[in-house]
Design a protein around this nucleic acid. Sequence first.
DNA 1: GTCTATACTGTGATAGAC
DNA 2: GTCTATCACAGTATAGAC
Lengths: 204, 204
Amino acid sequence: MLDMPKRDRVAERRESTRREILDAAWTVARESGLATLTLRDVASRVGMQAPSLYSHFASKNAIYDGMFRQAWEEFESSSLAVDAALPAHPRAAFKQTMRHFFEFAVADLARYQLMNQRILVDFEPTTEAFAPSVRVVERSVQFGQAVGISVEDHLIVIALVSGLINQHYANDPGGDTYAGLLDRSIDMWADAVGLPPEDSPPAM
Amino acid sequence: MLDMPKRDRVAERRESTRREILDAAWTVARESGLATLTLRDVASRVGMQAPSLYSHFASKNAIYDGMFRQAWEEFESSSLAVDAALPAHPRAAFKQTMRHFFEFAVADLARYQLMNQRILVDFEPTTEAFAPSVRVVERSVQFGQAVGISVEDHLIVIALVSGLINQHYANDPGGDTYAGLLDRSIDMWADAVGLPPEDSPPAM
DNA sequence: GTCTATACTGTGATAGAC
DNA sequence: GTCTATCACAGTATAGAC
């Protein structure tokens, strides 16, 4: 007999329903706001009654937890893709990863609020849902240290980009004012922490 | 007869009740979160039933509007006080105003969320409530331009500080990690935009 | 196992008595 | 101006059909 994994059609269907519900929850969150999302709206979008959701998620916060995990897994995998084709110059590499962070955040307000802001007061992500977020931050800090950036200076550049994202949503949603300030901001920071300019030969 | 303003005891009492309600709303917002504040909690704190609030505010959002205006008026007046005793060196002056901004934001999460973040999806401040906020931003930009800072670079430093505030609340609430990064961050920016170091003589 | 039906509590808001 | 009563709708939970 071949040692291949047996398909569990019941489990597959269950998982597929969970994903459908999460997809619907994202749609509703984008339309009516993350915090004001209602289970009735989510249920009706997948053709169910609200109480039926409880067969698949233990609570509304469990749905948020699934969304939180999805969002960070998506960011992690897209970050890995970006990192795979990173420029040799550290400064250019930082610009690229930070622009990726900025654009991912700016593409979806509900997702950004869930991932990075504590607007859901009684929601705390579970350890498993939090794991991809921890991995992303660790990878980013390690990359910085590999090119001589201290942890403190790394915190500053992340704060800088997250501030640009903030101001984008607060003052210019849909515009490109803050996207246009991104490279100049990163250059300011890179100059200060001693990263060589992009037209200089790579070290070693 | 003396031409003194007549006291309107009815209007005075009305205004005082409104302030009482707003004070109670702040307390509740700090305890249970800005978005999950309930009218019943606010009412019971001032010894009323929830519907009675509607004699003083047209809706829950009207209460948020009053709070929004209070918060920005408070920030405006404290900013004027700070500006009155500003150091002569532009760099030191920036450090001081930005630290004031940071500390005001970090002192009260509910207030910061109401003032600077769009977590209340269906709340839009009225023009009158928005006015002090506009004045504060205008004053700040004008000060920057007076010492040779472009509007774009001014947007960057505001984004930088707002990012530090963000990260403080997200990663180190109650701690002082990000407060400790403030001066170094401002110095990075000041170096990049060409503000002279603090130990240099003031220009002219 | 998954769904429908139904009920419970709590929310913002309104109507009308006093 | 404050109250009681009430409404529509939210999240949550259980019972029971299939």
